[in-house]
């Protein structure tokens, strides 16, 4: 019985290989030929802008907190109009494992994964991206959301003028 099993085990793989010889190959001749990954592919990370062109990232540290390999670092700062933004923002792609947890954590849809997987480099320092390198000129996958239209700190509109807000109350009023 062992002999019969051994013969089968030797021949069957050859048979399968033979079968594939007559099928259309799936191998692509990279880099001469390039394949377009699906839109949800997780590769090079970008920082997007809101529909008005403002930087979406508010430097909330949620992405860096979520990142399992600690490759994101940043410093928050405040603009004259009260907007919280990233004074600097750095992703070390030599450490990034493209897990997408940062994009999942981001409350403003600022940080997004793109299908651009071609970022290999001989100099490791070229893989350390600063904010200038990460920021793109578009909204990415969501073309609508503007965090400051919903936050209560009066950046996109004056305080109390967002669509989902009443104007400021007058605490000194005695009216019922």
């Amino acid at each position: 019985m062992t002999l019969w099993r051994d013969i089968k085990g030797t021949l069957q793989p050859f048979w399968i290989t033979l079968g594939y010889l007559f099928q259309k190959p799936v191998t692509i001749q990279y880099p001469e030929v390039k394949r377009t990954p699906p839109p949800r592919y997780r590769a090079r990370i970008v920082l997007t802008r809101d529909p008005d062109g403002g930087e979406r990232c508010v430097a909330c540290h949620l992405c860096s907190g979520a990142c399992p390999v600690d490759c994101i670092s940043m410093q928050a700062a405040e603009d004259a109009d009260g907007r919280r933004y990233a004074a600097w923002f750095r992703i070390n792609f030599s450490r990034c494992i493209f897990c997408g947890l940062c994009a999942e954590a981001c409350p403003t849809l600022a940080i997004q994964m793109t299908p651009d997987y071609e970022i290999c480099n001989r100099d490791i320092l070229n893989l350390v991206y600063e904010k200038e390198d990460l920021l793109i000129d578009g909204c990415g996958k969501d073309t609508q959301y503007n965090f400051y239209e919903h936050a209560g700190i009066g950046v996109a509109n004056e305080r109390g003028r967002n669509q989902d807000e009443y104007g400021p109350v007058d605490p000194k009023s005695l009216l019922p």
Binding site: G152, I153, R159, G160, D164, E165, Y166, G167, P168, V169, P171
Partner: peptide, 22 residues
């Protein structure tokens, strides 16, 4: 899903930042 109340903040000096909406 309705509207939220808002407040005007005060300047309270160099140590404390106020954000009354919260």
């Amino acid at each position: 899903r309705g509207k939220k109340a808002t407040y005007t903040n005060q300047y309270l000096g160099p140590f404390i930042e106020q954000e009354m909406n919260r």
